[in-house]
Design a protein around this nucleic acid. Structure first.
Lengths: 321, 321
DNA sequence: CACGGCTCTCGACAAAAGTCAAACTGGGCA
DNA sequence: TGCCCAGTTTGACTTTTGTCGAGAGCCGTG
């Protein structure tokens, strides 16, 4: 298959149509092909990111609630997805919004850290294609060998594919059975290099996990629901990039965390823009912990969650004063 | 006129249509308005930059000639507009390309320096709207009081308007009648501040002028064609931001230059990305001078000019070795 | 060299989007 | 109050775009 000429044609058709504003039949006669082909090329151009159609997400930041949250929580930017009556599926709405926001935040030459989870994969899946060169997507934590389609490496690869970027995933398990082995593996040059490269990312994308029996950590067999409950009683508040954090957003001191292969929280905090997306209302506590720990600078949530965060923040401030 | 609700509706319609991929009639029924209104809102959304449709300009950099030029002239990126048989108007083609390239180079928060000229104004005029916040467009040189529509301040303002950005033009004449007055005016705080702010720009957009009787400097009465000819014989090779440069791209030592109010070449060179656009084949000499003087990092030209530049560069290198 | 299997292309039809003049709305003003 | 104006909104119409199945070219294979 001759890739070049086809690609060229797609580019040319897209250029004449979108940049010059010609109609499809005019493009067709310029390129000496049928109008139907032009229509097909244009679809391909949109699908591959040769043309980019992006809508401003201002509508969702340009909101009193969003402003208040930014102030109250010290965040750089907050986007709030509406959750009223006729929004069919709030969690999809949040993902669509997050995908747009993400694409708005990505710049050429960026290095992007991506974690795992249903939310992240859903965003990847919804996200439209873009043609960024010189972008690298790196995986923030080890893999879980589960049958889920949203394994860390899947998330990384899918996002890389969408952006036409380079995907850098690392093939280590997320959790090992002994601390010793984890330590040894972390010291491996390949792994160490990748982990230390996390701090050089320009942008991170992740969600936060809940500490309960529904957690992927439990579903994938990394922890039993009993262990999870025990960790919870010892102060576990959420899961970030496979690590368990406490209510202050610090790594919980426990065997599990010491057996994990993942980017250190300090490296995550070193990333200038950290986009956190939370779909489920039930993840209030984990989210608050993550914010408390400074693990997020940009936030996409639903309206109900936004209100709860604001109420809680206000209550905390009041108590403090 | 209630601006808010209308704006909101435009945003919502654009969001549902472009981000969610609904059809116009579906959007209409969601928002309880007629489909015709949706169509109108969508047009407004495109016109105001609420939705951005951009086509990759890769086609024009992804070219052997462009690569060679980048290497030969030490430029960061070169775009070449085709000029074959059925391109109706090469100079428009160059401007359309330049507008796309410019929009691709602009980032949020940028400070952009803009010079004057037919080319720059044409780009501004063709350029689609975008909704960049936190962008500032500054004028690089003083005004000419001519009846042209492409006065420096017009260029600045139009580009600022298109980007939804802040325009900072300065109201000083480009040329004064005495060196003394020019010196005094340059020392004025308002002017000095703006001139010194040029170095802090992230991106510059300009073209280069020819040193002949057709030059705007002559047409606007800043110089007579006789003076122009004399300057030419003394080594003048081109005009950048209202200043006359020699073949090495340095300011020519002459009374005219000392009477000009404009950004110093050193400040221009301090701008990280300098996008130069040249439409006319006749501007070969001025362009080569500008490149020699390091006044451009990104270049948009036509195919013929590109070839001439490459040939000349090759000849020069050969002679040197 | 004939044969599937493959992708690419085209014509024709169906669906969607653009357009325009007429109707409507709400706010300012006599 | 009633009238007028400027700007919206709409239904009906036209133009443009999307899609689908048929056919054409292409290649490796038996």
């Amino acid at each position: 298959m001759a890739i070049r000429p086809a690609e060229q044609l797609i580019h040319k058709a897209a250029w004449l149509y979108y940049a010059h504003g010609l109609r499809q039949d005019q493009v067709a006669s310029q390129l000496n092909i049928s109008r139907a082909s032009v229509a097909m090329y244009l679809r391909k151009a949109r699908e591959t990111g040769i043309v980019n159609i992006s809508t401003s997400t201002q509508l969702f930041t340009d909101d009193v609630l969003a402003r208040k949250l930014e102030d109250a929580l010290g965040l750089d930017a907050v986007w709030i997805a509406p959750e009223n009556d006729h929004i069919a599926d709030p969690s999809t709405e949040i993902a669509v919004l997050a995908a747009s926001v993400f694409l708005e935040l990505v710049k050429k030459g960026d290095r992007i850290g991506v974690a795992w989870g249903r939310t992240v994969y859903m965003i990847a899946d919804i996200m439209s294609y873009a043609d960024l060169q010189d972008v690298t997507v790196v995986q923030l934590c080890g893999n879980l060998g589960a049958p889920y389609s949203y394994r860390p490496d899947q998330c990384t690869m899918e996002i890389a594919r969408r952006l036409n970027a380079k995907g850098l995933n690392f093939y280590a398990p997320l959790v090992l059975s002994t601390e010793e082995l984890a330590r040894a593996l972390r010291a491996e040059p390949v792994i160490r290099e990748q982990l230390s490269g996390v701090g050089e990312c320009d942008l991170a994308l992740y969600s936060v996990g809940a500490v309960d029996a529904d957690s992927h950590l439990v579903k994938c067999g990394a922890l039993t629901s009993g262990e999870m409950a025990e960790l919870r009683s010892r102060g576990a508040a959420g899961v970030i990039a496979g690590q368990i954090i406490d209510a202050e957003g610090e790594v919980l001191d426990c065997s599990y965390n010491r057996r994990v292969i993942s980017a250190e929280l300090a490296s995550l905090r070193a990333i200038a823009r950290r986009l956190m997306v939370v779909q489920e209302d039930s993840k209030f506590e984990p989210l608050f912990a993550a914010i408390a720990g400074g693990l997020c600078t940009h936030l996409v949530v639903g309206a109900r969650m936004a209100q709860r965060l604001l109420d809680h923040a206000a209550a905390t401030t009041e108590k403090a004063s």
